[in-house]
Design a protein around this nucleic acid. Structure first.
Lengths: 343, 343
DNA sequence: TGATTTTGTTAAACCGTTTGCACAATAATC
DNA sequence: GATTATTGTGCAAACGGTTTAACAAAATCA
């Protein structure tokens, strides 16, 4: 049927092993033989059978990405796609293929991962934003399979992971507001049990502290990563006798809620309230006004995760590799915070 | 190292072939043997080596998805992720794995696909929104590999494809505006060379015709799938002596531009202008006001594509399969078009 | 009861590669 | 010129399964 190494060997008048050696650039193959064999391969349209190859080499040159179960927060799709792009780009460059898998629930996820790794279909796995006590993590750890975590590295500080420095990111965002002249800066946080919420809050505290500004509990509101949370936070702030003039918001999607609320009440952004949030999903440029946001380099997160995983797969244990990568962030200042608050 | 079929065989006191037969539910295996072997497999933690299996079976139980080269229009990410979710869900259910691939340019894409299919790494491919004269399509067609097109089926009417009935979708959207009492309905189209723009325009014409409404060339504007296009279309319309009271817009992202422009000029949606657009990407609910949109079932497109491809891979040529699947759409009516225009 | 069919199992070949070892031919060394 | 190293290639055994053909034992038939 399809042309094999033997066909090439026969036609070239050499043994299959020689052909194989030509393929892998074995040093002991003569210039001449190599040339001839390659010619025949071209002529016959030979393509190595990846399955056969990985059967003997015990390595598949591919990795898998486990998508968290169906994202309730739809906008996460933007996140994931960007991550996947980064992952695929780097993997392909390194000669690896990427397999996407997802399960309806945790049990199915473990089954999928188990099939892929036990069945020797992939060499390692990338986990996206895993929750704490993730059974998939336990599985992978238990079987010593190579894998890398994207985000939430704090839940598993000893594991290979790629993450954002959320404390610093929040520090920078808050600092930006301060440098615009704001002194009354509120914070809209996410679910308090998530490390990302905690870290961003910490950065906010730190920036206020460093600037000698007072922390006011009533200028901090917790919520979900949902538009509605933003809306509610906004009405809370706007009803205060003393209102913040700037808001640092834990996620872009929450900002959309805030924007909408402010718009309904007739407040102007950034004149009445300045806003900056996190993640810089592609919608931030589209909102009215365009939203300042901390770009956390999502593509880069994926790219680096892929790289780290492949490195760890190929690793020969002679040297020791870093197990934690922090991707730099940067402020994307847009209209929503372009206003100098001169008292 | 890892436990093989032979280990199981030895421990169970049977031959490897028997174990293999147990695995594939061969009818001639006795109840008793099967039970015992399965027990041992469980005990030893046996997992079949997929590589070995597919080496002999010449089938990999996996498919690949070719991502178009880096989307300039970022929002396409939402599209793709949703599609991929659908593809992966159905593939996994059918016992197939999904491999994601993307190339920086057309040449690389062909190389990637060639490696995957010639190398017997995957059994078939899914192409997302391929352009016309796609070299990847030519490659797959030329080698008789199974594949399916998502969208743009009109460029290749004879190939297996999954698509939306864009004419009908636009017809329905326009009809909706008419039923709200609008008689001056404008259309914001996309690039005129794309089949999707053409089809949606056709549907718009048809609906107007059926309702006995006049088609006015100055109420039709062409542009890109970009926010800016919407903005420009909006200013064009608003400067006309006789302005439309409703707009049918070829894509959600374009609508965002329109919304923004209207907002800046102080027009109210839907009171001054009603709006509906297409695709219902997850942002439509977030805009101010929430945007009416024709949901084209993106997840479903992916799901069906996956199904169709796997069916075609497994197909035994005895029966003939449909080669074109149309995914139903439905109107998602939100605030932007909830206004009865009584003259 | 002997012949025939059915049932359950196995031995061996094969799928397409890689790779350790052997070996001849050539080159380098003394 | 004999000895040793180097270079280029082939043989055959894996890798972990599936599958064809063969066969003994049990069941069915006449």
């Amino acid at each position: 049927m399809s042309v094999t190494i033997k066909d090439v060997a026969k036609k070239a008048g050499v043994s299959p092993s020689t052909v194989s050696r030509v393929l892998s650039n074995h040093p002991r193959i003569s210039r001449e033989t190599s040339r001839k064999v390659k010619e025949i391969m071209e002529e016959l349209g030979y393509h190595p059978n990846i399955m056969a190859k990985s059967l003997v080499s015990k390595t598949t040159e591919s990795i898998c990405v486990i998508l968290p179960k169906p994202a309730e927060e739809l906008f996460l799709n933007l996140f994931f796609m960007e991550l996947i792009r980064g992952i695929v780009a780097q993997a392909n460059r390194a000669g690896y293929d990427v397999l996407i898998s997802s399960g309806g629930n945790e049990k199915e996820e473990v089954e999928a991962v188990s099939r892929l790794l036990h069945g020797r279909r992939v060499d390692g796995a990338i986990l996206l934003y895993s929750r704490q006590n993730d059974p998939v993590v336990e599985f992978l750890k238990g079987h010593d399979y190579p894998f890398v975590l994207v985000g939430r590295s704090d839940s598993y500080p000893d594991l290979l992971s790629v993450d954002t420095d959320n404390i610093q990111a929040a520090y920078d965002a808050t600092k930006h507001m301060i440098s615009q002249g704001h002194e009354r800066i509120g914070f809209v946080s996410g679910p308090p049990n998530l490390v990302v919420s905690q870290d961003r809050l910490k950065g906010y505290y730190k920036a206020l502290g460093d600037a000698g500004l007072e922390v006011r509990k009533d200028w901090i509101v917790e919520g979900e990563f949902l538009q509605d949370s933003g809306y509610r936070a906004m009405s809370f702030f706007m009803n205060l006798p003393e209102r913040p003039t700037a808001l640092v918001i834990v996620d872009d999607i929450v900002s959309f809620g805030v924007l909408r609320g402010l718009h309904e009440l007739g407040y102007k952004v950034p004149e009445d309230v300045s806003i900056i949030s996190f993640n810089n999903i592609s919608l931030t440029e589209l909102s009215t006004p365009p939203l300042s946001s901390v770009d956390i380099g999502i593509y880069n997160l994926g790219y680096t995760a892929s790289q780290a995983l492949i490195q760890s797969i190929r690793h020969d244990d002679k040297t020791v590799l870093p197990n934690r990568y922090i991707i730099p962030h940067r402020l994307m200042i847009r209209e929503s915070s372009m206003y100098s608050n001169s008292k």
